[in-house]
Design a protein around this nucleic acid. Structure first.
Length: 427
DNA sequence: TCTGGGGTCCTAGGACCC
DNA sequence: TCTGGGGTCCTAGGACCC
């Protein structure tokens, strides 16, 4: 539900989150240009301020900036087990600062401040900031605004303009002051305005957040659609997006990876598909859904246009919605075998679980007791893997023999989630 | 040589129906 | 030959988010 006018949204997020997580356990990374790389050490997905200052852009392929190692650039492979755990700690501290929290992504939360009246929210967020820093070790910034879009904007200002000291309250400024700051933010930096829209807006001479705020909503709707119209209204203080405290279950679950090296053999593709399906099945059971359609896809390397290209997808409807890894894996393998062609160098494979519905509404098949055993076994396996570590139990066919596993050249240990990898303190 | 992964929503167009 | 109008559903593609 949209909030009443006096309600305020806060948006708090971690600065250079993945890099900050690495720095908590490896202080030698402080004050140095550091980047965190995507799977297979493919692209830059996080940058320290020093790395940004070197001109490294978000998302660039690592091989294009790798030469900067000579200038002191340090690269870490991504360590999602660590980031997810640090995120949970950070979110739980943030959640203590408002009764209403929406965890929006791995590194940011919206907080809704309803009925806080004359409470000094700016001070409030400064305290939050200090506490997250002290308890979790992650630097964060906060923005306050009358809508989510304005809170996002305020957060961006808090990051960029040093005079805010890490917290920016947009509604505490008079209109003239707001306009001054909004005219310094590019339209493309507004939440909901992507690359394509930025180009189209520029052609209409709408270049800054202030220009966009002043654009007539009807005109924007007609030229760009309802999504951008909402953004414009939100910029003007009309809340179009409410707080979503209760995350809706996913409508679709995807598990896919690029391979560490190109794959040509069906046997290796089978291993990879089984291992991705194990991941997808865990997610499905965690949200207690069942799946009616399984998808499998393959992809050759689109960056090598001289090679023959092939990117097929198979969708396999299940006889009745299922939740257990055995049924899902069988369908996926059948799909894989139907689309596999010899003679291609595959770069990536993936599975999709589609047409999900709550397990409680699931329809039972012809052999419910057999089905029930499989579900029980899958859930048991989830619990064991949860306790003993991922892949302690897995489907036999997913044992790896090939080189499809991803590369992670410089990964940090799972400091907080594995007893074997706890950091040691020496005096 | 080397280029991530996982989501959502909106829209346009076609098939189909009455 | 001439050939309405409106609704639904599905799909593919585009755009956006992190």
């Amino acid at each position: 539900m949209p909030s009443t006018p006096s309600d305020l949204y806060g948006l708090i997020d971690g600065n250079n989150f993945y890099v900050s997580c690495e720095r908590v356990f490896n202080p030698r990374l402080e004050n140095k240009p550091v980047v965190v790389l995507s799977n297979n050490d493919g692209c830059v997905v996080a940058r320290s301020q020093e790395a940004k200052d070197l001109g490294i852009k978000m998302g660039v392929p690592w091989f294009q900036v790798r030469h900067l190692e000579r200038k002191g650039l340090i690269a870490q492979s991504s360590n999602y087990a660590l980031y997810a755990d640090m995120s949970a700690r950070m979110m739980s501290v943030m959640g203590q600062y408002s009764p209403r929290q929406e965890v929006y992504s791995i590194d940011e939360s919206f907080l809704l401040f309803e009925g806080f009246g004359s409470w000094n929210l700016q001070e409030h967020l400064h305290r939050l900031r200090a506490q997250v820093r002290q308890w979790v070790g992650i630097p964060v910034c906060g923005g306050l605004g009358s809508t989510k879009t304005r809170a996002k904007l305020a957060n961006r200002l808090a990051k960029r303009e040093l005079e805010f000291g890490g917290v920016c309250h947009l509604e505490s400024m008079d209109l003239r002051e707001q306009a001054r700051y909004l005219s310094r933010v590019e339209a493309g930096d507004v939440w909901g305005v992507g690359r394509r829209t930025t180009e189209k807006l520029a052609a209409l001479n709408i270049r800054t957040a202030l220009d966009l705020l002043k654009a007539p909503p009807d005109f924007i709707r007609q030229r760009f659609g309802v999504a951008l119209e909402r953004t414009v209204r939100e910029l003007n203080g009309l809340a179009c997006f409410g707080l979503e405290d209760e995350p809706a279950p996913r409508q679709q679950i995807v598990a896919s990876r690029s391979f560490g090296q190109r794959v040509t053999e069906l046997s290796e593709l089978r291993e990879s598909v089984l291992s991705y399906m194990a991941r997808a099945g865990e997610k499905l059971r965690r949200q207690n859904s069942v799946c009616a359609v399984v998808g499998v896809f393959l992809r050759t390397n689109a960056f090598a246009p001289e090679e023959p290209q092939y990117h097929p997808m198979a969708t396999i409807p299940l006889p009745s919605p299922a939740q257990d890894s055995f049924t899902l894996a069988k369908a996926a393998i059948r799909g894989l075998e139907s689309i596999y062609r010899k003679g291609y160098r595959y770069q990536k494979a993936g599975v999709m679980l589609m047409e999900l519905s709550p397990a409680s509404q699931g329809q039972y098949g012809l052999f419910p007791e057999e089905n029930g055993d499989r579900v029980t076994l899958s859930r048991l396996s989830d619990r064991i893997n949860d306790r003993m570590g991922r892949d302690t139990l897995r489907l036999a066919g997913s044992l790896e023999t090939g080189g499809w596993r991803m590369r992670r050249g410089a990964a940090s240990p799972a400091y907080t989630t594995s007893w074997r990898e706890l950091p040691l303190a020496s005096s």
